[in-house]
Design a protein around this nucleic acid. Structure first.
Lengths: 148, 148
DNA sequence: CTTGACCTTGGTGTGGCTGCAAGGTTTCTA
DNA sequence: TAGAAACCTTGCAGCCACACCAAGGTCAAG
C-alpha cells in the first residue's frame, strides 16, 4: 500500500500521514526499492484510530497517550478514563461559552434590521457601547472560542 | 500612556498590542523621546473594541472590516450585517458539531466505569471498534472543533 | 518518448497570539 | 552614587494540526 492509497482508505491527506510519521504518531513504514513508503493493514488500523480520536477533537498528544495504553494492555486503564474525562470537560466548557457567544451574537444581530448608513447602524453602536462599558458581561472572563 | 498601562487598562498583553500594531489593526502611536510608545484614550477605545469583538470570536480580518466601516460612517451598513450574520452562522455550525461531539464523548465515557486493565477497558475497545467500522457516524463528515 | 500521475525531501504559511534574547531606559532603594 | 528591578525596544521562534508548494526522482500508459 502506497501513501496515497493509505490516505484514500482512511480519508486523510498524504501530507498528514507524513506529518504523523514525523511526529512519531504513526510508525515509519518499510520502504520499497525506489524509496516509496509501503504500508500494511496495521498502519491503516492505527491511522483510522487516530482519525477517529481527532474526530472527537482530541489533541495529538492525548491520542499518543491512548496509543501508549494500547501498547501496554496490562496496565491499569485509569489513565484512559482521565483522558476522556479531560476531553469531555474541555468540550463541555467550550460548548458553554459557545452558547453564550451565540446568544450575544443573536442579540447583536437584532440591533440592525434594515439598510442604514454605518453611522446609524445599531450593531456598530452596540459594539462600541459594549466595548466601552467596563462591566460588559462577556469580554473580561470567558475567551469564548479556544480556551479550555 | 505607555504600552503596559494600555495593556492593563484593556486587559491585554503588551505583546498582543504590538502584534495588533504590526498587523495594522491598531494605528502606530506617537513615540516619546526615548522611543517608548505613547498612547491616548482613542487607542484604548479602539483596543477595547477589538477585544470585545475577539470575545465574540470574530477573526481579526473581520474586526478590521468593522473598523473600516466605522471610519466611513456614511457608507451603507449592509456589510456590517453580513459580517455579523457570517459570524453567527460560523458559531452555530460549530455549536452543532460540538453538541454531537459532546454526546459521543459522553457515550464513550460510559463504556468504562471502574478500574480494569487497559486490555479490558471498554473505552479503548469502543474507540478501536468505532475506528474500524467504516460506517462510523462521526468521523467522515464533521471535523468537530475548528472548521466552520 | 513524452505525458501525466505518483513519490521524495524540505520549506513556508495559516491564526492569534506568547515567549525569549539582547540590549537600552527609567525608577527605586541602600 | 551605585546597583537592582522593572520597564521599554526590536526581532525572531514556537504553538497546533495540518495544507501547500517547489524541485526533482520514478513509473505506467499511449
Amino acid at each position: 500500500m502506497r501513501i496515497s492509497e493509505l490516505g484514500q482508505a482512511a480519508g486523510v491527506n498524504a501530507d498528514t500521514i507524513r506529518y504523523y510519521e514525523r511526529t512519531g504518531l504513526l510508525p515509519a513504514p518499510a520502504r520499497q526499492a525506489n524509496g516509496y513508503r509501503s504500508y500494511g493493514p496495521l498502519h491503516l488500523e492505527r491511522l483510522a484510530f487516530i482519525r477517529h480520536c481527532r474526530a472527537l477533537d482530541m489533541p495529538l498528544a492525548e491520542i499518543q497517550q491512548l496509543l501508549d495504553f494500547m501498547a501496554r494492555p496490562d496496565a491499569a486503564c485509569e489513565g484512559i478514563n482521565h483522558l476522556v474525562d479531560a476531553q469531555l470537560a474541555r468540550v463541555r466548557a467550550r460548548l458553554e461559552s459557545m452558547r453564550a457567544l451565540e446568544r450575544q451574537l443573536a442579540a447583536l444581530r437584532g440591533q440592525c434590521d434594515a439598510n442604514h448608513t454605518a453611522r446609524k447602524c445599531g450593531i456598530l453602536h452596540e459594539l462600541v457601547a459594549a466595548a466601552h462599558g467596563e462591566a460588559c458581561a462577556c469580554h473580561p472572563p470567558a475567551k469564548a472560542g479556544k480556551s479550555a
